[in-house]
């Protein structure tokens, strides 16, 4: 197993173009586990932690451009206000040590259906900025996940950044695990209300071959909220319940050691209902605060 540690982004892209089976490693919280279990023996490990651009975030035209190598701990401390849904997801990940190492870029590169960041990225309509020696392109995150641990990345591409528009409304994130910390999701749900666009974003984790949205639930809720965005009136309980049902209907989970398919479906409906209730309460509170 060769180990390469490029110091610049250009070198990294050249190395990936030259060795297409090279496995990029950032925090190593997925890659090194796979190596330790003997499941992964890449010919080349491409360590991206020395590439300065990947460790930075900034704002371009109101959009946060999050370098692929920014660890979760910094998402929580530096971006909690700009990317609340993603920061909530980041708080559920691993231990402090894992959050100091693990990155959103790595979560995307692994593209596990159980990756904690995905539901928040889906709900927020994030874009993945990928690059190769051929150039740079942006992939909407909804189109990024192509199968179990497979993504739209070409074999010479690396993830440069994640682009997320800061929220115009409340965001929520909720995750089921069978212990209260340091646990892989049995099911997860991300929700973003977009009052500016009168739209709703959702993301489902650990309950289908890939992370996915719940389009019918989004459309249903956007329709129900049509008359409520301005009035900020109370949300009927039946709306939240129906939203939960539609979210769970979008899932296609399996039974595995972490939970049953039936439980996952049930848990999604509860999480969707509860997170919507909290998000709407926050939205109504905002009005009170502003007034």
């Amino acid at each position: 197993m060769e180990f390469l540690q490029p110091a610049t982004w250009a070198e990294a892209l050249e190395a990936k173009a030259a060795s297409r089976d090279a496995v990029p490693v950032a925090g190593g919280t997925d890659v090194m586990v796979a190596v330790n279990f003997g499941r992964l023996r890449p010919s080349l490990l491409l360590d991206l932690t020395r590439v300065p651009e990947l460790q930075q975030w900034d704002t371009e035209d109101g959009v946060v451009r999050l370098g692929a190598g920014v660890p979760y701990a910094r998402v929580i401390t530096e971006l909690g206000d700009r990317l609340p849904g993603l920061a909530m997801a980041a708080r559920t990940i691993g231990s402090p040590q894992i959050r100091n190492r693990g990155t959103v870029g790595g979560n995307l590169a692994t593209a596990s259906p159980a990756g904690d960041a995905h539901p928040a990225l889906l709900a927020a309509d994030a874009e993945v900025e990928v690059a190769s020696v051929r150039g740079t392109r942006r992939i909407p995150v909804t189109g990024f996940y192509t199968g179990v641990k497979r993504s739209a990345l070409a074999d010479d591409e690396l993830i440069a950044a994640i682009r997320i528009r800061p929220p115009s409304g409340p965001q929520q994130y909720s995750k089921i695990g069978t212990r209260n910390a340091m646990v892989i999701a049995v099911a997860a749900f991300g929700l973003a209300l977009h009052p500016d666009r009168r739209a709703v974003g959702t993301g489902i984790g650990s309950a289908a071959p890939t992370p996915r949205r719940a389009p019918e639930a989004e459309e249903f809720l956007a329709g129900e909220l049509d008359g409520l965005w301005d009035s900020r009136g109370e949300l009927p309980a039946s709306t939240a319940t129906r939203f939960g049902e539609l979210v769970s209907a979008a899932a296609a989970p399996i039974d595995d050691v972490r939970g049953t398919a039936r439980y996952r479906v049930h848990a999604l409906s509860v999480m969707a209902r509860r997170t919507l209730t909290w998000a709407w309460a926050d939205y109504r509170k905002e009005a009170t605060t502003c007034a």
Binding site: M88, R91, T92, Q172, Y173, S174, K175, I176, G177, N180, A181, V183, V270, M271, R274, T277, W278
Partner: peptide
């Protein structure tokens, strides 16, 4: 959240 079922995974604010 650290004191409720589910912890910081944010599954309940007291409901249920």
């Amino acid at each position: 959240l650290r004191e409720v079922p589910g912890g910081v995974s944010n599954t309940t604010h007291g409901e249920g």
